[in-house]
């Protein structure tokens, strides 16, 4: 439901990021059938060709696959999902460090802050 797009980044890239997130967060499960291009395009209020492009790209990445007659499905290959999870966690950590570096923190200060946070939560 919650489709929001940033300006200046191609929509199909943002769609891929959103669906990747949905795959990892369990909204779409391994081997599950995905809604059709038209349904998703309508939900997100984007051009069906754009949705199609995002799907083709994810097919190329082997995250989803097409059954000729029945539609599109999430990959059944758990290793693909695990690899994506790893890749995304690296991306978020990189972003986190980049942001804090630009605020003037060094690695040690960041690690200390992370440790404090973890202890605080226990």
């Amino acid at each position: 439901m919650d489709w929001e797009f940033k300006k200046g980044v191609p929509i199909y890239i943002q769609i891929i990021e959103k669906i990747e997130f949905d795959l990892l967060s369990g909204k779409y499960k391994v081997g599950e059938k995905l809604p059709s291009v038209r349904e998703l395009a309508m939900e997100a209020n984007v051009n069906p060709n754009t949705m199609q492009k995002a799907f083709s790209e994810m097919e190329r990445m082997e995250l989803i696959f097409t059954e000729r007659t029945s539609g599109r499905y999430v990959t059944t290959d758990q290793t693909k999902i695990d690899a994506l999870k790893k890749e995304l966690s690296k991306k978020y950590v990189d972003e986190f460090f980049d942001t804090l570096h630009s605020l003037g923190f060094d690695d040690n200060e960041i690690l200390n802050a992370v440790n404090t946070k973890c202890k605080g939560e226990e």
Partner: peptide, 14 residues
């Protein structure tokens, strides 16, 4: 539109 957004790094509106 996609190429334009990618090239310009901004929205079509921008």
């Amino acid at each position: 539109v996609e190429e334009l957004v990618e090239e310009q790094g901004k929205s079509l509106d921008g």
